[in-house]
Simulated scan of single mutants.
Amino acid sequence: MADRITANLPSRDFAATEAFYARLGFARAFRGDGWMILRRGDLVLEFFPHPEIDKRTSWFSACARVDDMAGLLAQWQQVGLPQDEKSIPRLTGIFKPGQAPRMFALVDEDGSLLRVIDNIDAGEIDSGGAA
């Protein structure tokens, strides 16, 4: 198995978090009282209980690097999440902040930010190019 890292994000309610991410194609890999793991192919998200998290002030985030960013975005757009700048949850379109790779962003129901980064565009950074 290749080295990997997975995100650890808060969940106010495991059932609600699991239902939200199921709409995006994630399935339960594990769920106990104090931990939940959801998987969508090679994308793995792990959650811990945090019932008092304020979704409007949450600072939790993670990055997912994918080969077909546009294809994944098209699939997730079918869910019908809001695309404005203030809704929680919400989904953005593709953008490129400065010299960073192209990406889109998902904010989940608990206010956690998931940046979905284009592997192809990130190649310059991963190989030691300017960031």
Rank of each mutant, 00 (worst) to 15 (best):
R40H: 09
D42K: 03
A15H: 15
D54V: 06
R115N: 11
I125N: 08
R4Q: 10
L106Y: 06
P97C: 05
F60T: 12
W59M: 10
D13M: 06
L91P: 05
W59H: 13
E46K: 07
A74M: 04
T92I: 03
L106Q: 05
D126T: 15
T17G: 01
I117E: 04
R56C: 00
S87R: 07
A2I: 07
D121H: 09
M103F: 02
L45G: 05
V44E: 14
F48N: 13
R31A: 11
E85W: 07
A122S: 09
T6Q: 06
V66K: 10
I5E: 05
D108I: 10
A29I: 12
R28M: 12
V44D: 08
A27T: 14
D33T: 15
D108R: 05
L38F: 03
R31N: 15
A100C: 08
A2G: 09
D108G: 08
G98R: 00
N119Q: 14
F60Y: 08
D118I: 03
M69L: 14
T92M: 02
E85N: 13
N119P: 03
A130E: 12
E124T: 14
S58T: 15
I5Y: 02
G98W: 00
D121M: 02
G25P: 04
Q83E: 08
M1G: 15
G41L: 00
G93N: 07
L114W: 01
R115G: 06
P10F: 03
G128C: 11
L91W: 03
Y21C: 00
A16K: 12
D110E: 04
F48V: 14
F20P: 00
G128Y: 15
T92H: 04
L38T: 05
D118L: 00
E46V: 08
V107H: 08
S11C: 12
Q99A: 06
A62G: 13
A74I: 07
I94Y: 01
I37M: 07
A62Y: 10
T17P: 00
E18N: 10
L113C: 09
D84S: 04
L91Q: 05
I37T: 14
F20T: 01
D118M: 04
A16I: 13
S58F: 11
E85Q: 10
D67P: 07
D54G: 02
D110L: 02
E124H: 15
W35Y: 14
R115A: 12
R31P: 04
A105T: 09
R4Y: 12
G32C: 01
A100R: 07
D84C: 00
